[in-house]
Design a protein around this nucleic acid. Structure first.
Length: 198
DNA sequence: ACATCGATCTACT
DNA sequence: GTAGATCGATGTA
């Protein structure tokens, strides 16, 4: 069995600045998330994110490390995937540094590549319904709990690459939380139709 | 052990 | 606009 030649990206310099969840949430807008899976390749343009910070009452890491959230306490550049509401997965990119417990929730993508595969995974035809929400996006990209802890540096099939810079970004409050509701830690590309909620 | 709640989505009214 | 699905993590005893 031959090893498939694959470009390897060796360090974090190929990723946006992940030094803080807050700045990374804004910086990730306009990047492409790519998943090269056994089923095929899908890619989407990141149009909506949320920052979950250290000492943030709405963050999974607020009450300290646990089996579920330990990836968030690890090094940046990895995926933190969790299961919620008994049926959905949500995808985060770990930021900051080991021990801090910060991440950026990827809330919505504009489908760019592998759209037929996204339609099949989602059992939906309309592009606007493929990835315009955190759990929709996870399903369209074929991401589940087995990808918790996957690297974004290519070796696990995930990569990020820069796309067209957003013209304008809107900063507002996060969705679906009951704590720290006043923080303006959600970001989206202004007027992009693939954003989950205005 | 048990109860509660959730970084959601869908289908229905 | 709102109810229901469905289960893992967490808090309370």
């Amino acid at each position: 069995m031959t090893t498939k030649p694959k470009a390897t990206i060796s360090d974090l310099s190929s990723l946006p600045d992940l030094s803080s969840a807050l700045t990374a949430a804004a910086a990730l807008l306009g990047w492409m998330l790519i998943h090269d899976s056994p089923d095929g390749l899908t890619a989407g343009y990141i149009v909506e994110t949320e920052a979950y910070m250290a000492d943030d009452a709405a963050s999974h890491t607020f009450r300290g490390e646990s089996a579920r959230n330990k990836i968030m306490f690890g090094p940046p550049g990895y995926l933190y995937v969790y299961f919620t509401y008994g049926m959905h997965y949500c995808v985060n990119i770990v930021t900051s540094k080991t021990g801090n417990g910060e991440a950026v929730l990827i809330r919505a993508l504009q489908p760019m590549d592998g759209i037929e595969l996204m339609r099949k995974r989602r059992n939906k035809q309309v592009d606007l319904e493929l990835a315009s929400g955190p759990a929709k996006m996870a399903q369209a990209m074929g991401i589940n709990k087995t990808h918790n802890g996957a690297s974004l540096l290519g070796k696990d099939g995930f990569t990020l690459k820069p796309g067209p810079a957003p013209k304008q970004i809107t900063q507002t409050t996060r969705v679906g939380i009951s704590q720290a509701k006043n923080k303006l830690w959600r970001f989206y590309i202004t007027d992009n139709p693939y954003v989950s909620k205005k």
